[in-house]
């Protein structure tokens, strides 16, 4: 029963991603990405991972809002598609290589659950006594695997820092003429000129 439902969801996701790639309108492309996210979240729920399902659906909502805000403000909703032969051929070759080696590797894998999952069995059996957390996912990510979460928090922190540096409106230092020449940053008048030309 669950498998059938998952197959339906998978077909739904594939159709959604094909629409997202192929459609010419940027807004409908963003909405099709939302279809994929919703289907992924239902699939996580079916597979018995409510923690990830909650996170997936909430992050998808926020990203959809941000992307719609971004695509509407930047008035560039029609994209002209053209084929890049080299990119297509090289990705096909790499995908074929990946399939061959994945097929070889999967044959070497032991059957599911066979080496008795020693580490995860330890977590499931002693997690409650050792940490006192009733939610074993919280016990794993914040106690047993604390370093992972620390690295994750560092990744979020650094990426937010980087995007703030790029997106902020003006820097601490006043921009001078010398900077414009040296680094090649467009001055305000030049941006205005460029976008004026693009509009025509």
């Amino acid at each position: 029963m669950v498998e059938t439902f998952l197959f339906v969801l998978l077909i739904f996701m594939i159709v959604g991603s094909i629409i997202a790639i192929e459609t010419k309108n940027l807004l409908s492309s963003v909405i099709s990405c939302g279809i994929v996210g919703a289907a992924v979240s239902i699939a996580f729920l079916m597979l018995g991972a409510p923690d990830i399902a909650i996170t997936q659906v909430v992050v998808e909502i926020l990203i959809l809002v941000i992307l719609i805000r971004a695509t509407i403000t930047i008035d560039n909703t029609a994209i002209e598609a053209h084929w890049d032969t080299f990119a297509v051929v090289s990705s096909l070759i790499f995908f074929g290589l990946f399939l061959v080696f994945a097929f070889l590797a999967v044959q070497e894998l032991p059957p599911f659950g066979q080496p008795l999952m020693r580490v995860s069995k330890e977590y499931l059996q002693t997690g409650l006594q050792k940490t006192g957390a009733a939610n074993v996912v919280a016990a794993i990510i914040l106690d047993f695997r604390g370093y992972d979460t620390l690295g994750e928090a560092t990744v979020i922190f650094v990426s937010i820092l980087g995007s703030f540096v790029i997106l902020r409106r003006r820097g601490r230092k006043r921009r001078t003429e010398a900077d414009t020449e040296k680094v090649g940053i467009l001055s305000e008048a030049e941006i205005r000129e460029d976008y004026g030309d693009l509009r025509e």
Partner: peptide, 8 residues
């Protein structure tokens, strides 16, 4: 309630 129920 992240340590008791799903979420966090």
């Amino acid at each position: 309630y992240g340590h008791l129920t799903p979420g966090g």
